[in-house]
Nucleic acid binder design. Structure first.
Lengths: 215, 215
DNA sequence: CGCTGTGAAGAAGTTCACAGCG
DNA sequence: CGCTGTGAACTTCTTCACAGCG
């Protein structure tokens, strides 16, 4: 759907999208430091990237800079937030209230911008009915009907690997369009669902490789 | 020691390295299912990738397959583990025993293959001296001498954003060569140190973008 | 005949270098 | 004069397509 607003956001490459949240964080830091204007070199330093790439990335969102000056921090932050869809409040559900799930629930960085936890699910009878963080009561995922009624945008899976696929199936059936999976399995979801895998042990193994290489 | 075995591991591209841990996980699943041989199509399905790419990736490690058959699961798993340096036990320290830190400490997936927690640090006086998971006692990072004595390979940072850079500096000074940072800041480390950033809120923001894009 | 290994083609992403505007 | 915006060069990654071996 070629968006009525005529944005050319569709053309923003994935690699750029992955960097925008980082730029946004840098801009928030700049705001906290009362810096009103920043140039591509400054953003590159703060984000650990390259200035030319920063310009290319930002240019995908439009011509937001002023030649000879740089970018207005507030304007740019607002623009990135809008492109990332953070101006809309996203409704997020957590499935699997283990330690990691609990950590995410109480992780300030989320609720911060655009994300609201709307439900917590677990299969453990001892946990169901108890209060999780954020004032939410832990429920059973069996109530798929309940899930549909939540109109959740994003689901975060922090269950054991063995249950992750069936949880994902339930979520997809309930209309969830985006899944962030922390379980160490490759999930299969229909093409219209966006899936991101975060496997913590993969990260450690990559570091291990670099240690092995460096000797 | 420029590896007596004359490996050509140095030429393995980063993108391949990032996928090897995923292939390894698939092979472990195959082992659990008593599947002795697997072909590139099978690995591609299990890992959610493309068969040609799987072959290219694996071929970087040598000619490990048998034409007309596929790859011996055990042999391949062993080879990948060796390339990733998982045959050596890696000594990992955790800095910042918050909820996320606690979750990682007790996350089975780590201790599993090649990773051993050797110390836990925190600045909170109430936590120092108490037992964390894995039978470790929480210590103060002030004792940088202690840290050096640990001969840690990898450090995992789960402190608040504001303290992460100074923690990283301390770790680098103590000789740590690989850092996995969960704090939402861009860390600066010397070139010889490998750094990986995992920012959980970045992941959610990327999902948010895809929701926004899909209308 | 099936599946790996691989050159060649193609796509995607990054860096360069500078024109052009404020 | 400084910094953005951007074509063009370059590099890296992925896919294709098939030769070649078991």
């Amino acid at each position: 759907m070629t968006s009525v607003t005529g944005e050319r956001v569709n053309q923003v490459p994935d690699s750029t999208i992955a960097r925008l949240p980082v730029y946004l964080r840098c801009l928030h830091e700049a705001q906290a430091m009362r810096i009103p204007v920043i140039n591509s070199v400054g953003i590159a330093q703060m984000s650990g990237g390259n200035a030319a790439l920063v310009r290319k990335d930002l240019n995908h969102l439009g011509e937001l800079g002023t030649r000879g000056l740089g970018y207005d921090v507030d304007v740019l932050a607002g623009h990135i937030a809008r492109v990332l869809g953070l101006t809309v409040q996203r409704r997020v559900v957590l499935v699997g209230l283990g330690r990691l799930g609990g950590a995410l629930l109480n992780y300030g960085g989320f609720g911060d911008r655009g994300m609201t936890w709307v439900a917590v699910f677990d299969t453990d009878r001892d946990k169901i009915g108890t209060k999780a963080g954020a004032g939410l009561t832990v429920r059973s995922l069996d109530e798929a009907a309940t899930l549909s009624g939540l109109a959740a945008d994003i689901a975060v899976i922090t269950t054991p690997a063995q249950s992750a696929q069936s949880v994902a199936d339930t979520l997809v059936a309930a209309g969830v369009l985006s899944i962030l999976n922390f379980a160490p399995v490759t999930l299969e979801v229909p093409g219209h669902v966006t899936l991101r895998q975060v496997d913590l042990s993969v990260e450690l193994q990559i570091l291990s490789f670099h240690l092995a290489k460096g000797l």
